[in-house]
Design a protein around this nucleic acid. Structure first.
Lengths: 262, 262
DNA sequence: TCGCAGAGTTTACGTCGTAAACTCTTGCAC
DNA sequence: GTGCAAGAGTTTACGACGTAAACTCTGCGA
């Protein structure tokens, strides 16, 4: 992973599987990813070995090198897969809400995020846990930041954009109280000029609140999934709702408890 | 790690090294831990192999089984080592402040936590990152929660108690606004009866605030160390101070910028 | 029909954790 | 002092792992 590498890998749902060969190949990719995911869930990251996957497929391990340059490339592709699934899931949950109910969409998105994380702890850990060297770790960043050629990075950006869009939409429909520009410490203020899509549409104070909210949400869900909350809470759901309510207050929107459909 | 196991390992600074044998043995433990730590920092968790440690010590790998039952036991002991170092560090920073300046101690402790985490990213990741199966993961918890026999758990409890003590002290000197008992959702309220030392001295609403504050601090430092903040901030220190200021506001204490001594 | 590219296998090397049996050394009881 | 048991370390070995290199087979297009 020290050399510049190619991250060629197929987006899961390719539009037009041209030749037969290509269809078979795409199916193989799907099978590899799927078995890898299953191993991740049952055995942990260490269990995701090329040999185990090959065994499960009735192949030998070196054959997998026809599909992935290395184990790390497979793990990165799995990152992308999870990010995309998570993004699709959240987006779908949002789209089920009324178009103009941004507050509702924000709450639904947050809950969907927590829900997915709980139901897919291994996958969540893969995405948001300790950086995996060569896969999604600091060594995979370019000097400019994200590496758009890395599928994990690309999918991660897409994920972040969902929340950012919601935040921007909320600001536009009903601005909430934010720290004024001259109330933000200059050293902080000067860093808030992100060139993230959408970010330029809201003032720096709102971006600060976005960051703050995301850090809390991340901290909460991460501690929960990692078991770092077990000493305090048996069921973290009520605390999550409490935190969500706090966030709503900060954003000047009305908190609404979750509609429980089983 | 599926069987009940003994976590025998020496606390680093044993008081009275009785026999010569014991002193040599204690020195060996220190060397193992120290080389393990170095490998963790330079090569990552995967680089902490018994063979590499033994190589560095001029021994063969199986010899290390005289000291640790398995690699997992070594990693757990390293957890304890890091927790203790972190706790000592924070405690020392606190003790440098005036006895009655609880607000100052709280801020100093938070900054010390962030500082140590930044300066010891590998160690921080080992403690607060993805749970390591058999070491500090969900499988190491007993049905009652922490496993006091696991040195990593014991040291973790000690670490948590530092912040809890500060919080309790703050509450006693100057109570801050908290949600009233009947304003907390019953499902949440009923979970706040921790049997953590000190927790019973503050009301449930204060415990809720403690949890909330810790989640934010954890989320912030973790995202930062894991590089998940790089897209937004080049230097996270001002944002950390911003969050600290928010916390101070919630706790009704006066925020004071850090005294910069190099 | 030829040939070539793609898919998969075989073999091999060096890594790892760790179990079992062995040897050397040290310190204590007599 | 002598003997002996316990402790420390080694040797050898097994089965995992990632992956490199060379090989074989198969199916598609010219």
């Amino acid at each position: 992973m020290t050399e510049a590498q190619v991250w060629a890998a197929p987006g899961e749902g390719s539009p037009e599987p041209a030749s037969r060969r290509e269809r078979v190949r795409a199916a193989a990719y799907d099978e590899i990813r799927s078995i890898g995911r299953q191993l991740l869930a049952t055995e942990g990251l260490g269990g995701v070995s090329l040999r185990a996957i090959a065994r499960e497929m009735g192949m030998t391990a070196p054959a997998l090198y026809r599909y992935y340059e290395s184990r790390e490339h497979l793990l990165a592709d799995m990152c992308a897969m999870f990010f995309n699934e998570l993004s699709d899931m959240i987006q779908a949950a949002c789209d089920a809400e009324a178009d103009d109910d941004i507050a509702g969409r924000l709450m639904v998105a947050s809950r969907a995020f927590r829900r997915w994380s709980h139901e897919h702890q291994a996958e969540f850990t893969h995405l948001f846990g300790s950086p995996i060297p060569g896969v999604f770790g600091p060594d995979t960043y370019t000097p400019e930041g994200f590496d758009p050629n890395n599928p994990a990075h690309a999918a991660g950006i897409r994920f972040g954009a969902i929340f950012m869009r919601l935040f921007v939409a909320l600001w536009r429909t009903r601005p909430f109280p934010i720290p004024a520009d001259d109330q933000i410490a200059p050293a902080l203020r000067s860093q808030l000029d992100w060139n993230l899509p959408g970010a330029e549409e809201i003032p720096p104070g709102a971006r600060l609140l976005f960051l703050s909210a995301w850090v809390s949400l991340y901290g909460l869900v991460t501690m929960d999934v990692f078991g770092h909350l077990g000493w305090a809470l048996k069921d973290s759901a009520p605390f999550f709702e409490y935190e969500l309510e706090q966030l709503c207050t900060k954003l000047g929107i009305a908190y609404a408890p979750p509609t429980e459909e089983l």
